[in-house]
């Protein structure tokens, strides 16, 4: 009658040493539409594909500002993300009040990490069904973090989570070397191209379904201090100028870019499910 006896709660190990509830939560992340994040020496960007439940409905938001210096991209259960988002907003505000500065990104990410891990070892609790990419700047520069329902958090150079995100990751791995020294615009273009890789055949990036978030770290001339370019969201018509830069028509222009576009095509069929 029961297919699996070890997945009723998140405190019971299976005989193979697995915790199924946590693994199912990780599946929820894969159901969400894809989000991509990249960090350079000066900026961190998030780009996302939004989905609409039906033709006539609006698109579900994927990017959320947390504080002046941080934003998140979500894949999975939006309502769970809301809880984490509100928590992070409060922590950032509290830190600003107590210390008069932007909360260090790693501090903040560690806190949601602990919060999520806690859910995986208490009977009657369930893991968050959402994965996050957190982009922000602090005293040490721009950062990109990945957060998983298991409570695992890791700093990333570039990453993608969500449905068919493996294609996007393949693109990111291929261009990893160029990210660190990319400009703001180049970084956004890379993000959008990575997004494109993960699209299903007949879909494309439009002003309706694409979101872009950017946060920057601007050093003064002497390099002694920095200013935050606040986390900015681009939605709707605002993304059109970025989309034009990566449209197929413009792609044909440079030989190098044409190569880039063609290369990952080969293995785009087999990966992910």
């Amino acid at each position: 009658m029961f297919r699996n006896n070890y997945d009723n709660d998140s405190v019971t190990f299976s005989p193979q040493g697995r915790i199924f509830q946590v693994e199912y939560a990780a599946e929820a992340v894969k159901q969400g539409s894809v989000v991509v994040g990249i960090a350079s020496k000066t900026h961190a960007v998030l780009v996302a594909i939004k989905r609409n439940a039906e033709e006539l409905s609006s698109y579900q938001k994927k990017l959320f500002p947390i504080d002046e210096h941080v934003g998140i991209a979500i894949a999975g259960l939006t309502s769970d993300a809301r809880v984490l988002s509100n928590f992070m907003k409060q922590q950032c505000l509290g830190h600003r009040l107590s210390y008069g500065r932007n909360m260090p990104i790693r501090n903040m990410v560690d806190q949601i990490g602990s919060k999520a891990q806690n859910n995986t070892q208490h009977y009657g609790k369930r893991p968050y069904g959402v994965g996050l990419l957190i982009a922000g700047v602090d005293n040490t520069g721009p950062h990109l973090f990945e957060f998983q329902p298991s409570g695992m958090t890791e700093e990333m150079q570039a990453f993608a989570i969500g449905a068919r995100s493996q294609m996007a990751r393949t693109y990111l791995e291929k261009h990893l070397e160029s990210f660190l020294d990319s400009s703001r615009e180049e970084l956004i273009s890379h993000g959008l191209k990575a997004l494109k890789e993960s699209l299903v055949q007949d879909r494309e990036l439009t002003v309706e379904n694409t979101s872009i978030g950017v946060v920057g770290y601007v050093r003064n001339e002497e390099g002694t201090s920095y200013k935050v370019e606040p986390f900015t969201l681009y939605d709707g018509q605002d993304v059109s100028e970025f989309l034009e830069k990566v449209s197929d028509a413009n792609e044909g222009g440079g030989a190098a870019t044409a190569e880039e576009a063609a290369a990952p095509e080969g293995d785009s069929m087999e990966v992910d499910s």
Partner: peptide
Amino acid sequence: QRGQEVMQANNLFTF
């Protein structure tokens, strides 16, 4: 990058 990441005097003052 030591010196960048620690709390500066103004942060400690606010605290």
